[in-house]
Amino acid sequence: MIGGMSRIVRTMTTLIFGFILVYGFYVIAHGHISPGGGFQGGAIVASAFALLLVTYGTDQIQSYLSKDLLSILESTGLVLFITFAFLGLGATFFYNFVSNSGGLFGSPTTIGVNPGDLNTGGTIALMNMAVGLEVLAALGVIVLTMSVAAETIQKKEKQ
C-alpha cells in the first residue's frame, strides 16, 4: 500500500477513474427519473476515491485531494440541502416549492409511464445534487482519514 501498485494497474485505474466519476455524476443528476440519486452517486464517486487510494498510496493522493477541501465541500452540501428545506418555509419546512412552477426543474411531468424529462422534480433534483456533494465528500473524508490513520499506526509499529 505504501508504495502503490505497478504501472499497468495505475494506468488502468486512471482510465477507469474517469468513467466511474462520470457514471457517478450521471447517477446523481438523473436521480429523479431513473434508479439512483444523491446517495448512490455519491457512494460511487467515493468508491472511485477509494480505488485511487488503493492503487496510488495515500501520500500521493493527499497532495491532490486534501481533507480540508473535502470537509468544506461536505458542510457546503449539507448547508445547501438545509437551505432548500428552509426556502420552503412559505408553506412548511421541506415544502417542494419548485415543482410544477415553471422555471428550472419546475416543469410538470406527464402522468403515467413516460420516458421522463430532466427538467422536472423541483427541489428533488436540487436536493439530490446537494446530497450527492455531501455524500461523496463525507465518504471521501472517511476513506482518506482512515487510510492515513492506518498508515500512521503501521509506521509506528515498525519502529
Binding site: S34, F39, G112, V113, N114, G116
Partner: peptide
C-alpha cells in the same frame, strides 16, 4: 420497480416506502 420511466403500462408496482427506508438505513 416503482419508477415510471421504464415501467410497462398497467402493471402494479412494488411498495416504494421500504426502499426509501432501506436507503436511509444503508447509509
Amino acid at each position: 420497480a416503482p419508477i415510471y420511466t421504464q415501467a410497462p403500462e398497467g402493471v402494479k408496482m412494488v411498495l416504494p416506502t421500504p426502499q426509501a427506508l432501506c436507503l436511509t438505513s444503508i447509509v
